[in-house]
Design a protein around this nucleic acid. Structure first.
Lengths: 281, 281
DNA sequence: GTCAATATGAAACTTGTGTTTCATTAGGTC
DNA sequence: GACCTAATGAAACACAAGTTTCATATTGAC
């Protein structure tokens, strides 16, 4: 990145007076990100005056700082957009494109999450006296997965909707010391919104995980995680929430500490006794 | 890069008026390079006035554009230059490590799959007169997801185990023109193996998706996909099979062509009539 | 030490960026 | 349709960025 500028600087470097050299050094260190900085900041960083910075720009052959910045930007831009173009030209097969898509989806959904939000979420799950996992339609598979994990480290984890029962019936047992883990991806029925309202009235905690379709439903929740769910093909992809749930539940186990560990071990043992395929008879 | 900003934008996006959305879209496209552009340029690119751009910055919670630019810069800096300088020093937090893990897991599971195997698998699913999706314990959530997708493009997709019924009872209806989609991740009961044997005897087709625990069970299956499932924390991760199932089912819809499309559209319509949250009453 | 020649920073200046104001328009409600 | 609210762009504005000027400091030659 900014290779063009680097060449220019190096070829002039020996001619530069001390002050201008200081700035040149800073420029070289910056590389691609240079365009994000103002000439004033660069001058400060180098410990010289703005005037010196301005003069260096001239000496390097630019008419002004603006021009330099644009060159760096154009040069650096060859990094990503050209790569995208090339990617299209390399004619990846559809599987490779699908993979790229899902990786991007996963990454952009998780990477910006503040550590504090994760911490609060895991504590909310860990400290709850009972947990309710709710998800309709598409989200039900996720709910099932979440319950599967949570039940291994904590007693009293209930899945909704349960076959043969109405949600209202089940939820009548909800208490204010409980936490509801709501999976709200596209295609939730209106019922889902009502449930969140009820949960709020009862003053139980709500942890909402969903996609852009939840819109301002985040007002009903104590903590909200938004994941990308748009798939590469016809169907929505749930890699992001899957990964997030995995991470959160691991975190819950850590918060619960000893208690969870023993519970987990006991679950392993039960599996063995019950007779897993793969374990000795 | 600029992940934090992306999260912020996505969480506010639905609240934004059209003009501000245009700029938000531009910001999302820019990602890391954003700091190199002035608010004026962004406004021009989005086709709105500077004033609108300024207002968006406010709405996203920044005091001014300067502040936004600095956050993007600091955030993006964790990406390349620091990594280049001292890879060892980059003390990623546990979430970042988890993300890396799951991305690696997903990538290594899918990228090596031959196109031909995908093709055969989708055809096997598409051509079956009936489909059975089987998965116990951990794999049941995956099975549920698979059924959810398949039922949208094909009639007669049955999920096993079903609550209140024994698998044997259900499977008595299995015919040799059927296909069984078996999810065999860690912790399958012995029953699972027995089922695969029965399926083979009946000469129905078997598509097996699982992890290393399936060992030589692939002999019982016509096609086998092996995914990584070892998680970064205590629990297994299922991002890879999730992504694979998504891709395969999309493929099935394509193979089935028109018939699947209309079925899908009808399903969408039904959802709407049934009354989704987010759709007009 | 003196003298050029050059380099430098402080401050004045200019320009353009980003914010704010305000009148107009669009969207929603009764 | 009348009304209110919110959104928007044009223009006025405030401010900071970058350039230029100028007086001072530095360097090297003699």
């Amino acid at each position: 990145m900014a290779a063009l500028l680097e060449q220019t600087i190096r070829s002039e470097y020996h001619r530069l007076p001390v002050g201008e050299r200081k700035i040149a050094d800073v420029l070289l260190q910056m590389r691609g990100e240079l365009a994000a900085y103002s000439a004033t900041e660069l001058a400060e960083r180098a410990g010289v005056s703005k005037a010196t910075a301005s003069r260096l720009v001239r000496r390097l052959g630019f008419s002004d700082y603006q021009q330099l910045r644009q060159q760096v930007r154009a040069d650096g831009a060859n990094g990503s957009p050209l790569a995208e173009f090339a990617g299209a030209l390399v004619k990846k097969d559809t599987l490779a494109r699908h993979l790229d898509h899902d990786v991007a989806c996963l990454t952009s959904s998780l990477e910006g999450i503040p550590a504090d939000q994760i911490r609060r979420a895991t504590e909310m799950l860990a400290k709850a006296s009972r947990l309710w996992v709710i998800g309709f339609r598409n989200s039900h598979a996720l709910a099932l997965y979440a319950r599967e994990l949570l039940i291994q480290v904590k007693p009293n984890v209930r899945l909704l909707p349960a076959p043969g029962q109405t949600v209202a019936e089940e939820l009548s047992a909800l208490a204010d010391s409980d936490t509801v883990l709501a999976l709200g991806f596209r295609r939730q029925p209106r019922e889902f919104v009502k449930i969140l309202q009820v949960v709020r009235q009862i003053k139980a905690r709500t942890l909402l995980i969903g996609d852009s379709s939840i819109e301002d439903l985040d007002k009903q929740a104590d903590i909200t995680f938004r994941c990308q769910s748009h798939g590469s093909g016809l169907f929505d992809t749930y890699v992001a929430p899957m990964s997030l749930l995995n991470y959160l539940c691991s975190g819950v186990a850590v918060v619960l500490g000893k208690a969870a560990q023993t519970r987990l071990r006991r679950s392993e043992q039960l599996h063995r006794q019950f007779g897993d395929f793969g374990s000795p008879p």
